Structures are given as structure tokens and as C-alpha cells.
Computed example of a mutant assay.
Amino acid sequence: EAAIIVGASNWGVFVRILLPLSRPLVVYMAVTSFAGTFSEFIFAQTVLRTEAKQTLAVGLFNMANTQTPTEFTVFAAGSVHVSIPVVVIFII
């Protein structure tokens, strides 16, 4: 309220007051989001062991960690295929 009384706009209140106060929360959310994604990968790798139930990330991981040589073009195409939903959500 004090910033608005002084003459700050809504954007100014957000940038100068709310955003610096929420920085620890943003860092916390980034860390827990990464940890949640990582633990989901471990869950998918250990519990969903059949090839019919594997996620794309686990399939790419298994493709890269096999004893036979992996075709780079197939691995690159799979990596792009996995990243498309993340890019679309980011753009939205």
C-alpha cells in the first residue's frame, strides 16, 4: 500500500517489492521441481521395467547405456521428441 500511495504502478510494486520477496520461493520451487522429475525417472526406471510400459526418457536412457552401438540419429530424434512438450509449455 505504501508503494501505491507514493505513486508506484502495479508493475512497479510487483518488480520492486513482490518479486524480491518471492525469490526464495522461486528457488525452492525450481529445486523441488527438478527433484520431483528426477525421482519420477527413477520410479519409471525401476518399477516400469517392461518395454511396453517404459517412458520416453527411460527408453532413451536404456538406448544410450546398451552394450551395442547406438545410432546417433535415432537417439537425437528421440531427444528432440522428448523435449517438444517442454518447449511448447514454455512458449505458452
Rank of each mutant, 00 (worst) to 15 (best):
G12N: 01
S79Y: 00
I17G: 03
A44L: 05
F90N: 14
V87I: 08
V15F: 04
L48E: 08
F14N: 10
T32C: 12
L56H: 06
F38K: 01
T68L: 13
V15H: 02
A76N: 06
W11M: 06
I42N: 07
I17H: 06
R49E: 07
R16S: 08
T66G: 13
Q67C: 00
G59M: 00
F34V: 14
V58W: 02
R23A: 13
V27W: 07
E40H: 06
L60I: 14
L19N: 03
G36I: 03
A2W: 01
F75N: 10
T73G: 01
T37K: 06
F38W: 09
S22W: 02
W11L: 10
Q67A: 00
G78L: 04
N10Q: 15
A57G: 04
F41I: 15
T37L: 08
T50K: 14
S79C: 09
V47K: 06
M29C: 12
K53T: 15
G78K: 01
T73Q: 12
A35V: 11
M63A: 03
V27T: 03
E71F: 01
V47M: 07
I42Q: 06
T32Y: 09
I5D: 02
F72P: 02
L48M: 13
P20I: 01
V13R: 10
M29Y: 01
E51M: 04
F34D: 03
A57R: 09
S79V: 06
I84G: 08
A64I: 04
A3S: 04
V47H: 10
V26N: 09
E51C: 01
V80H: 03
G12P: 07
M63N: 01
A52Q: 15
S79A: 14
S39R: 02
V82G: 07
S9H: 00
P69L: 00
Q67L: 04
F43L: 09
A8V: 00
T46V: 15
F34Y: 14
F14E: 04
E40M: 13
R49V: 14
P85E: 11
I5P: 01
V31F: 15
P20T: 05
A52C: 04
F43N: 12
R23G: 03
L25E: 08
I17A: 00
S39G: 09
N65M: 11
A2C: 01
F90H: 10
S22T: 10
V13S: 00
T55K: 08
R16N: 09
V82L: 15
F72K: 04
G7M: 11
G36C: 05
R23H: 08
T46W: 08
